[in-house]
């Protein structure tokens, strides 16, 4: 897998090139710790889901005469297996396909391992920018960036704190142009 490239490059110094025929993929990856963060998140939500399924099925087995105990074991077991599989695989896949670029003209986001989504948000349309750090994010020293346009927000999750701050500041700089929508 391609690693991050560390060429120097000041914001705002890029050249304007022709309107391209193709959209080359964005180059920047999220922070590798994103995988651990998402794994922990999936594990927590998975555990809750398994708990609910187990409670429901074992409850049914206890109180409904027709419902045998082995069905409860089976349902809970399958759910548990799926939850483990999900927590194990999906963070890697998500991380692998997440790419973003912050160019002076627009933010370019690409993500999704199943349905792949490409989002282009012109800097001139961005109204304000957030960085967010939830309790889990802070455990891993990560933050997400939210770009707000008049047609809804776009998200870049799981960047290292410093990177998120840098991304946010660059966006704010590029976006600081009055524009009547």
């Amino acid at each position: 897998m391609a690693t991050n490239t560390f060429d120097a490059g000041e914001a705002g110094t890029s050249r304007v090139i022709e309107v391209p025929e193709r959209l080359p993929d964005p180059l920047h990856q999220l922070d590798p710790r994103a995988r651990q963060l998402w794994r922990l998140g999936s594990a927590i939500s998975g555990a809750m889901f398994v708990g609910i399924v187990a409670l429901g099925t074992f409850g049914a087995a206890r109180f409904l005469p027709d419902f045998e105990m082995r069905w409860a074991w089976l349902a809970s077991g399958i759910t548990l297996a799926l939850a483990i599989l999900n927590a194990w695989l999906s963070p890697n896949l998500r991380y692998r396909y997440w790419r973003y670029d912050i160019r002076p003209d627009e933010a370019d986001l690409q993500h999704g391992w199943f349905t792949r989504t490409r989002q282009l948000v012109p800097m001139a349309r961005i109204q304000h920018v957030d960085t967010r750090r939830g309790p889990l994010d802070r455990r891993f020293g990560l933050a997400s960036v939210v770009l707000y346009t008049a047609a809804g927000p776009a998200y870049i999750p799981a960047l290292a704190n410093e990177v998120a701050a840098d991304v946010r500041d660059r966006i704010a700089t590029f976006a600081n142009i009055h524009d009547d929508l």
Binding site: G9, A11, V16, I17, I102, R103, D105, R170
Partner: peptide, 10 residues
């Protein structure tokens, strides 16, 4: 017209 991508320090 598109700006070329600047790889920023990570």
């Amino acid at each position: 017209p598109r700006h070329e991508v600047v790889i920023h320090k990570v």
